[in-house]
Simulated scan of single mutants.
Amino acid sequence: MAEPQQKPLVVVLDYGAGNVRSAVRALEEAGAEVLLSRREADVLGADGLVVPGVGAFQAVMDGLKQADAIRMIGRRVAGGRPVLGICVGLQVMFEHGVEHGIDTEGLGEWPGTVEKLQADVVPHMGWNTVRPPAGSRLFAGIEEERFYFVHSYGVQSWDFDQNIESMVPPQVTWSHHGTDFIAAVENGPLSATQFHPEKSGEAGLKLLRNWLNTLPVTGRISVQED
């Protein structure tokens, strides 16, 4: 019999975002023990935290505020504890979101503004390629794959100061729909994707496994395999 293998414990943040069950199922299929929760002990204690997001930037920020999730996300990032944002969960990591003339403050983890895509057809809905940087851990082995996007807004410029001493610069992955936009960011404990890994078939599952493989597993949960 093989040695017991530990599963990472991942919390999918339950703050009122829709369609989170597909993310839960995909993470379970990728090999995680998954809990849908907003309890502080769960959010702060999990090996990994996933911040989903669909709909409007302002509505997602309102939901995060009501769940006291902004503070908890900040504590995890400050403590080097892995966080993965998905779709609007990526967008709110930036400084601002501008939708229908309304400028909403984001979490400010990265500089930049989420704005309407400059494209003939919006929303950007369907499969698209991405351009990950060399050495990306999220996209290891799936650099040429397509991923599933559903969004009308995105971050179309990257203004991070890459010359700050003693700081490893974030890795930025780009895609294109009418204009270049940020498809993913990897920045120490904080990663995020504009596309939906949970809707991206085998490529999305591989990306989730890549992320799970970066998590420091606490050893609280284990399974037996024959």
Rank of each mutant, 00 (worst) to 15 (best):
E3H: 03
E3P: 00
P4F: 07
Q5C: 01
K7R: 12
L13V: 03
D14R: 07
D14S: 04
Y15G: 09
Y15N: 04
A17F: 01
A17E: 08
A23R: 01
A23F: 03
L27E: 05
L27K: 03
A30G: 03
V34R: 08
L35I: 11
L36F: 09
R38L: 07
R38I: 00
A41R: 12
D42N: 07
V43F: 09
D47R: 03
G48A: 03
G48N: 04
L49T: 04
V54M: 10
Q58G: 13
Q58Y: 15
V60Y: 05
V60G: 11
V60F: 04
A69K: 05
I70H: 01
R71T: 14
M72Q: 14
I73G: 07
I73E: 09
G74V: 07
R76Q: 11
V77A: 10
A78E: 15
G79C: 11
G80C: 06
G80I: 05
R81D: 01
I86M: 08
I86G: 02
C87I: 11
C87L: 10
G89E: 01
G89I: 05
F94C: 09
V98P: 08
V98D: 11
E99C: 15
G101P: 13
I102S: 14
I102M: 15
T104Q: 14
G108R: 06
P111Y: 10
V121F: 02
H124I: 13
W127S: 09
W127Q: 10
N128V: 12
N128T: 13
N128Q: 12
P132H: 06
P133L: 04
A134H: 02
S136K: 01
L138I: 00
F139G: 01
G141C: 05
G141R: 07
E144K: 14
R146L: 06
F147A: 02
F147G: 10
Y148W: 09
F149L: 14
F149R: 06
S152H: 12
Y153C: 12
Q156S: 15
S157L: 10
S157D: 14
D159E: 15
N163A: 14
I164C: 10
E165Q: 14
M167K: 12
V168H: 00
P169A: 04
T173M: 09
T173Y: 11
W174V: 14
H177L: 11
H177A: 11
H177F: 09
F181M: 13
F181I: 13
A183V: 12
A184C: 08
E186Y: 02
N187R: 01
N187L: 00
N187Y: 07
P189W: 02
S191E: 02
H196Q: 05
P197G: 03
P197E: 02
S200E: 07
L205N: 05
K206M: 07
L207P: 02
L207D: 04
R209H: 00
R209A: 08
T214H: 01
T214G: 00
L215Y: 04
P216G: 02
P216N: 03
V217A: 06
V223A: 12
V223C: 02
D226E: 09
D226A: 11
